[in-house]
Write a protein that binds this DNA or RNA. Structure first.
Lengths: 223, 223
DNA sequence: ACATGCAAGAATGTATACGTTCTTGTCCGC
DNA sequence: GCGGACAAGAACGTATACATTCTTGCATGT
């Protein structure tokens, strides 16, 4: 095995690497919703046999990121606006509970600001992947202190499966400004340790992005 | 291929059969929480190679029914009372939304009564598996008419992963009576098309079972 | 020209086989 | 007698190989 493997992935199993990589491809739009997922190609790209690829695909299928048709294979899940409404509804309900369960004093607001700072230096439309990663990190800095493991895991899943669609609104020219203001309001509420206000601004932020995503979905033509 | 394969499973793929069977084993308590899941044994039992078994296990892992440790294999997930609290919390939030989204006139209350009737003729402690199946069918007769696909799928998952623990309270002598009364209240609210009342009695039913499950969990000694 | 059927190719699904890692029981040293 | 190293065995993880199913393009007939 050559020197080229990124250190972080070196000691992961084949299945793990496949999981991480295929998820990334879908979120980054390398694999588009509705598109067929070719096991042989992935195996070749990831330099493993089809066995670990298939196990990763099975997991992503269970997560809801892929659809499976017997003897035909997997395709990337396509969500219509109703599906996205379901996802955002679940996020609202579950994230609200997470926020209520957290001791806001335990949240690292400085680090959150730090991430916002880094996001400022990025043009979302050009570094979508990095921007998304930071965005996710920002929001989970808030949610991670919660002790409700299973709820957090589910919220995490909801983020993943809708990641590609969420990335769409980043291309809206007015998006970064809105996001910045809403993110600041979130940090401010954290600093003030005002739970009700935090829930209010989080809801506003979530609804705002949902509206943009659904708009964009409509403009992307049907389904 | 001999004649013995149950007709319903004949045309399912190996992975599908493994999924159904392994899930059943866990819910039925053939595989207990914390117990190791032996791939070779399962493959032999299910008359397939380890490949489809592993793909099924990967899916059950993603569903949260199994835990995986690299190079050591899978074990059945163990939930402590906090985990169960998370599950019941999520069920309450999501099932409430499902109920609100349903046209109660579209629910087949007669069929629900029918199932209650059949449950009456069973001693839960003796036919746990069948009783659980009917119980699940009863509740999803109510929830299935909802158009919120993804929410329903998630509620379904929450039922699955906690199925074994839910089965525990069936052994409580006072359980059948409580259940019967609560189930009747649910059907009555459906017939009256009284959403608020339906949510109220559903909450009561859910909290009641949660309390019994956690009690039982405590009596089962730690974790 | 269009629909239908068929054959070649490709992709999936699974069995077998093998290398690697972990577990377990034993032996050695303290 | 007890704890730790070591070796044998078992179990996991994955590559290879093959059977089955699906897709696709062409030929055939209407």
């Amino acid at each position: 095995m050559a020197v080229s493997t990124p250190t972080a992935l070196r000691e992961l199993s084949g299945v793990q690497r496949c999981l991480v990589e295929i998820r990334r491809m879908i979120l980054a739009g390398d694999l588009l919703p509705g598109q067929k997922v070719h096991q042989g190609d992935l195996a070749e790209q990831l330099k493993v046999s089809r066995i670990p690829v298939r196990e990763a695909l099975a997991q992503l299928h269970a997560e809801g990121l892929l659809v499976h048709k017997p003897n035909t294979g997997f395709t990337v899940a396509r969500f219509n606006s109703g599906d996205l409404a379901d996802i955002y509804l679940m996020r609202r309900l579950l994230e609200t509970e997470l926020i209520r369960s957290i001791d806001l004093a335990a949240v690292d607001a400085d680090l959150m600001d730090d991430i916002l700072e880094r996001m400022d230096h990025l043009r979302p439309a050009e570094s979508s992947e990095e921007y998304q990663r930071l965005n996710r990190e920002f929001h989970f800095l808030l949610l991670d202190p919660s002790a409700m493991e299973l709820v957090r895991q589910e919220v995490s899943r909801l983020w993943y499966i809708s990641g590609f669609y969420r990335s769409l609104y980043l291309y809206e020219p007015e998006a970064p400004g809105h996001l910045r203001a809403e993110h600041e309001a979130i940090v401010a509420a954290v600093r003030a340790e005002d739970v009700d206000e935090l829930i209010r601004v989080s809801d506003a932020h979530r609804s705002g992005t949902e509206r943009l995503v659904v708009q964009r979905l409509g403009r992307g033509r049907e389904r």
